[in-house]
Design a protein around this nucleic acid. Sequence first.
DNA 1: GATGAATGAGAATTCATTCAT
DNA 2: GATGAATGAATTCTCATTCAT
Lengths: 217, 217, 217, 217
Amino acid sequence: MDQQLAFAQFGSMPTNTQNRRRRPQQDRSRSTVEAIVDAAAQILEAQGPQHATTNHIAERAGVSIGTLYQYFPNKQALFTELARRFIEELGTATEESLESISMGPMQEVVPQFLHTLGRLHGTSPRLRSFLFQQPGSQVLMRDFNERIEAVVARVLARRPEFRDGNPTLTAQVVVRAVDGVMRDTTLREPERVHERAFIDELSRLVLGYLMLSATGG
Amino acid sequence: MDQQLAFAQFGSMPTNTQNRRRRPQQDRSRSTVEAIVDAAAQILEAQGPQHATTNHIAERAGVSIGTLYQYFPNKQALFTELARRFIEELGTATEESLESISMGPMQEVVPQFLHTLGRLHGTSPRLRSFLFQQPGSQVLMRDFNERIEAVVARVLARRPEFRDGNPTLTAQVVVRAVDGVMRDTTLREPERVHERAFIDELSRLVLGYLMLSATGG
Amino acid sequence: MDQQLAFAQFGSMPTNTQNRRRRPQQDRSRSTVEAIVDAAAQILEAQGPQHATTNHIAERAGVSIGTLYQYFPNKQALFTELARRFIEELGTATEESLESISMGPMQEVVPQFLHTLGRLHGTSPRLRSFLFQQPGSQVLMRDFNERIEAVVARVLARRPEFRDGNPTLTAQVVVRAVDGVMRDTTLREPERVHERAFIDELSRLVLGYLMLSATGG
Amino acid sequence: MDQQLAFAQFGSMPTNTQNRRRRPQQDRSRSTVEAIVDAAAQILEAQGPQHATTNHIAERAGVSIGTLYQYFPNKQALFTELARRFIEELGTATEESLESISMGPMQEVVPQFLHTLGRLHGTSPRLRSFLFQQPGSQVLMRDFNERIEAVVARVLARRPEFRDGNPTLTAQVVVRAVDGVMRDTTLREPERVHERAFIDELSRLVLGYLMLSATGG
DNA sequence: GATGAATGAGAATTCATTCAT
DNA sequence: GATGAATGAATTCTCATTCAT
């Protein structure tokens, strides 16, 4: 009932996290917003969109429906904020993992990266799927993917093997392909995402492609 | 308004009646069912799920709401039937394209196949996305993907290069990766799916992987 | 499924039963009406009013909905006809039983009568209750009860003990009291209606009253 | 329009919330529930079940349809609550009348009691008939009748004349017989229930039976 | 006469949103 | 700020009835 949403664990919100010195009232209302957004995320993940009614969300958040509308002009705005946070956190977490493992030999780096990605993907598959379905989440998704693709492109560009390739395009294809396999697999066979065999096979996909791309195809 | 839904062009298929309230006994009612399912598909694709109310669907189909409920016990059953048809047709079309192009050299076969897949994917992206989201479509999706993966595996197995590999696993990864890239790209940059550069890059992904897999990784 | 409705067994319809010489067509349509009315009775008794939709009735009767409307202008008319038949048959059966046992000593006559009444009451309690609830069945019910009350009054009047009483009033009270006990008991403890102890107790009720009434109260 | 339903005058009673969606927490909502239940009772009594639609009930209660559903999960639950209240109030009123008049001579007590019962019965005959028809009201009815029968049995047991009889059985028959006569008569000739002649005749029925039962039949 | 596909008014119910307290 | 009672438009679904074949 009170479990924090899993995706929230990958780090705290970066949105104006610095220099915050709030008065108690603000703290209270801050945590109210938090509670509402978390409640929405929980319900979406655990019970699906049909159950994510504003009344249900408010109840789960432990506030009245009136309070919910004090902070969000309408339901859509709540989902949009949730999407924003979700992507923000997922993006940050992904970037961090990526940066931290980027300089070893490809044969090691790739599986490590995929393993991390699997963990991130496995976190809230239904929520993720729902948010990416939302009207207007195109933009968010684009931003998110561009962010990830940019990191990957940067990582590739740093490597001598890719001096002659097109890191941007390569990154796009890699990220989307991995994303696709992960998403499908997460929804259909959630456990497999963490299995060694799965990671290895996916690594082969990426490595094969990178090798081809490195040499200019 | 009256444009036939694209996916319907791949030919009709046998009709299971599981989710049907009444089996049509006259020609008139057969085309009525068709009209209803088509209307649902059109609205879903063009306007999204929010607009796919039973009344709207009936109206678009040119029948009364009562008629709709004569053939479907509830809204969900209509969507289930739509999903069944969609997947059936998409599956058949995919299989056919695949089989017909399967024996040339890899460097030619793969782009051809991807081109076809791009066309099929581009057909009804929102509808597709919606249907795959539906409760219970897990099963349909699994069946569909297994079907495609089976054809790909069969094609691979026929090739001498893959004598030593694991065609089933390879097929799974290829199909899902391609599916993922296609899906993402279709939703975000629909035109790109048909561009030469995109197809070529995706071909590189597949070819690189296949080469690695063929030699046993 | 095809069992004739129990209430129909107490004798055939007296409505223009004589001199009938129908052509086959007429016979066929006669039995169609029969089938429809019976189907309605069966559904009402076995499944309750909620399930007695015109479509369901027609289906059970083995005819199309169109045919039903060929014979009855609307649903209400069907129920009215059913009520007419029900009461007609129940009335006739009751009268016959009553007349046939009327001249023995009271201590024997009354239990016999009550036993018969119990059998008649037990026949179709839900149907009976429903029909008597129908708008416009007031009249039918009044007629029916008056008919029964008239027979009872006649029977009483024939007896020397009641020479000084008011047989009409007495009959009214007896019939309604017995009817009330029967109805309650039939609905709540259907088996008891046929039990000796129940009949005996009810007999005491009637006999006590008749004795008081006979002597002028 | 705004006349309080007669049966409501017997005093309020404890409220069980089993069939309630939300328990009123403010005074406002308590009276809202009251208004809804009363409106249902009024419509049922005055216009019959066909007119007792949820929209009509809400309108008559002066609230929106949404408010109705805030307190009752569905229409049936509203009727169940109404039945509960009706029976509760009728039961209490009956018990009170009974207890208060129980020790005089039979010839006086019985008519008094019947007069009271007539008044209670005359209150809402259609509503009563409808409620007792409802699925699941078997239980309520059984409880109600057992309650009344228990009081009558207790009253009888206190009397020396019945020392040798079976007060429980006797009470059952008396209560059901009176109930039956009352019910029939209320529906068919509502005014008669209050007439002296009717009460006297019914008294004779009861007295005759009690005399027979007292002496052991 | 019979059929059954089609109709559509109307009923139940939901849920995002408002607003008096 | 917070509450929760109230709102009512919108949605799903039913079923008596019609009518072309």
